[in-house]
Design a protein around this nucleic acid. Sequence first.
RNA 1: GGGAGUGUCGCAUAGUGGCUAUUGCAGUAGACUGUAAAUCUAUCACCGAAAGGUAUCACUGGUUCGAGUCCAGUCACUCCCA
Length: 376
Amino acid sequence: MHFELKHTDPHSKARAGLVHTDHGTIETPIFMPVGTHGTVKGVHQQELRDDVEAQIILGNTFHLYLRPGLDVIEGAGGLHQFIGWERPILTDSGGYQVYSLATSRKITEEGVRFQSHHDGSYHFFSPERAIDIQRVIGADIIMAFDECTPYPCEYDYAKRSMHMTHRWLKRCITQMDSTEPKYGYSQALFPIVQGSVYPDLRKESAEFIAEQNAVGNAIGGLSVGEPDEDMYSMTDLVCSILPTDKPRYLMGVGTPVNILESIALGVDMFDCVMPSRNARHGMLFTSEGTINIKNHKWKMDFSPLDINGTAYVDQVYTKAYLHHLIKAKENLAIQIATIHNLAFYLALVKEARRRILDGTFRAWKDEQVKILGRRI
RNA sequence: GGGAGUGUCGCAUAGUGGCUAUUGCAGUAGACUGUAAAUCUAUCACCGAAAGGUAUCACUGGUUCGAGUCCAGUCACUCCCA
């Protein structure tokens, strides 16, 4: 994998680039739909490719390891083969589960012991194990095993955790260097910056990560409940330190506004469950603002889902129809809403890229932030 | 004509003498950021933005310190026998 920086916006820190992988090239800035269990919930791979126009999707090490299990994935010939997705895949290492499963895990220097939510069984993830599992899954981009700290987080805890994540990173790198890809295409390891909302920790972490000279770098531990201002200031600080010739991935972000603002700070890659999860819960991100399609106000609204939407579903289906489907708990509601939201996100970053390349990003972004932040 | 049974917030339900009448569905909103999430939370008789206030268990009357609950009558519905 390698990154090709094509252009940097003179009016902001936004960049347009290309991430070349053995499964194809990704145009950045990019949004990566989350497909935790080997599926972006509610969306066929064909729809993901042709309607959403996803260029890369996520899988999750922890979930895939628990189910279906490594024997199945390896038997299939890797995750791409197993799920029928020929484009790039990125796997999270399980670091987020260290955060989200805080009540059923125990962290030590050696690694993390998790309790399965399926059968209560115990499983141990070390940095080495996380790499080994991701080798089996076979993602193009694999993430270092880290601790995603919660918010708020005491300074001393954030500092100790960050240092442990750094030591874990060294172990991940060693494990990467001493193992080979299983399926004949290359895999790239992205390290992750931590440090909670403390500037000195973020600075130290970003410098440490930058020194590793990885092919791409990630910013973790944000979008866990901190104010947006903190998220932006940490992102800005970290981006000022991370190398410019490597892609920067802001993990778990975010709303359309978060993404535009972070692109302006120099972030190239994003992932978030929000468009897919919130779609299932009736929230649609549209070119005119955010709507809750379950609200009574849409019952008789026969306008297209998104008048400016680029996806098939946007023009063919009306708000009233989707309102009806979701009230009736029809499966199609989830499919339509998810395709819409993801297509909206992908179209948004695609337009951002176009604007960066033609020099009109900054003004466009400022205008879009006002519109997309609205609740209608 | 005779007999038996049932009436609880839109629907369905719990409640057989004791504090604010239960729960589900439906309804109305809200939350959701590297997915234990097609989930969760609130509200859901009436007035009120809220605090709070006023009611209520088909209806009327009775027994009782106290009634959705017991008794009587009325009304409605269901079933059975003619």
